[in-house]
């Protein structure tokens, strides 16, 4: 067991965003969280990494509570977030973005090795190391966002909509990389609207609707589930041809 979320509730002012969300991400797995826009997926990730404070419930890493730790220390526990919309430091170079990603104590211990690994996974980042992040294409920006998280050699990687705004071929690229990162031993928690691709990749999956977990199963079973297919995979109730 690794990341566990217990009965987590969060709100924006009076508006509840998460209602008693419970889920688990076991070590070494890819866990997908799917659900419509506004379901609370991003809020859940932001709460896990300490950018948003829960009103109730707990976030546990290996059984230890995380939700009282200051947000800037979350990375020291091996949790890295690739945020929605990438959130790169646009006026800084590719290399500088990675250096900032390697700011934490945890990252500094393994810096040389981690940089080598990132440049091996994304050779294009090595080629463009001196370009400003804002001048990169969307796909490359996503690679850099993932690279910036990876240089801290996280135990668990949280990905928020990594496919957003990317061409289909680039989406495939990114997901292939996610699979590779997972095979190298990193647990992945993937939040996606692109449910089909996410479920094909994941071992385990949860569905979040209006702040509640409304479904949990193995990803393979979910791909076959009639209700899930209708609601999220765009099949009008008919079996796949």
């Amino acid at each position: 067991m690794m990341l566990e979320i217990q009965e987590l509730s969060a709100s924006y002012g009076d508006l509840p965003a998460l209602r008693q969300v419970s889920l688990k991400a076991d070590a070494g797995k890819i866990v997908a969280l799917i659900g419509p826009n506004g379901a609370g997926k991003t809020t859940l990730l932001r709460t896990i990494v300490g950018l948003h404070r829960p009103t109730a419930g707990a976030v546990l890493l290996d059984g230890k509570p995380l939700h009282h730790i200051p947000a800037h220390q979350i990375i020291e526990h091996g949790i890295a977030l690739v945020p929605e919309g990438r959130r790169l430091f646009g006026g800084m170079t590719v290399l500088e973005n990675l250096q900032v990603g390697a700011y934490s104590e945890r990252a500094r211990k393994v810096q040389a090795q981690a940089f080598k690994q990132v440049f091996e996974i994304f050779p294009v980042l090595a080629e463009r190391r001196d370009s400003l992040a804002r001048t990169l294409s969307g796909g490359m920006q996503q690679m850099l966002a993932i690279g910036r998280a990876l240089v801290a050699s996280p135990r668990i990687l949280l990905l928020d909509e990594p496919s957003l705004g990317l061409a289909p071929i680039m989406v495939q690229n990114i997901f292939t990389v996610v699979q590779r990162i997972n095979r190298d031993g990193t647990t992945v928690f993937l939040v996606e609207q692109n449910a089909r691709t996410a479920l094909e990749l994941a071992h385990d999956a949860y569905i979040l609707e209006q702040g509640r977990i409304v479904g949990h199963n193995s990803a393979a079973a979910m791909l076959k589930d009639e209700q899930v297919r209708q609601a999220y995979l765009g099949y009008g109730g008919k079996a796949e041809g």
């Binding site: 950018l51 800037h72 990375i75 977030l81 430091f89 646009g90 500088e96 900032v100 934490s104 998280a149």
Partner: peptide, 18 residues
């Protein structure tokens, strides 16, 4: 670099451990 990163996006900087 931490100062510049914070200026650009304090949340992303926080996530990096700053």
């Amino acid at each position: 670099k931490a100062i510049r990163a914070t200026a650009e996006d304090w949340e992303a900087a926080t996530q990096a451990g700053i």
